[in-house]
Amino acid sequence: MTLPFVVFFVCALLAVLGALTLILAREPIHSALSLILVMVSLAVLYLLLGAEFIAAVQIIVYAGAIMVLFVFVIMLLNAGVEERTDYSQLAKYAGLALGIFLLLALAHWMAHSLIGQQIANGVGASNASVSTRELSAQLFQKYLFPFEATSILILIAILGALVLAKKDE
């Protein structure tokens, strides 16, 4: 076991544990904190994959901004223990069956399709990290129009949030 494998398995274990805690926790604040654990361990995995800029953005935007927003809303609405209503027994069994089916289907795809076999052989995996300079060149040349469109999207999202959250007169 070399160092990258150890780092990968520790972070993968933390991510899966965090996701399980998100499901099992009754208090929404516990779910939010375990989701932050998932996001931080995914950021470490991005570093392991050599995507430094994405790792930084993951920490700053996801674990920082978005999750603070979630925690803030949980505190604001004083969300307590989730109440268990048993209106929809169907949803429970359908959800479990759907999740297991998805896992099996993906595992089958990985094992049998051509691209899955290429992936399993680790085709083209290199260790060099992607420089932020190359990434920004892509972002501001090839993807300039979508990048500008996201600024309009964020502006509309801010306006929408303001309109929705303001008090009615």
Partner: peptide, 30 residues
């Protein structure tokens, strides 16, 4: 180097857990 397939398996597991959480949880924030 850790093979790419390991990452994809982890991604599939997290996505499946996300679907299960989406259907199981009753709190709208969760």
């Amino acid at each position: 180097i850790v093979p790419i397939s390991y990452y994809l398996v982890l991604s599939a597991i997290l996505f499946g857990l996300g679907i299960i959480a989406f259907v199981f949880k009753r709190n709208i924030i969760t």
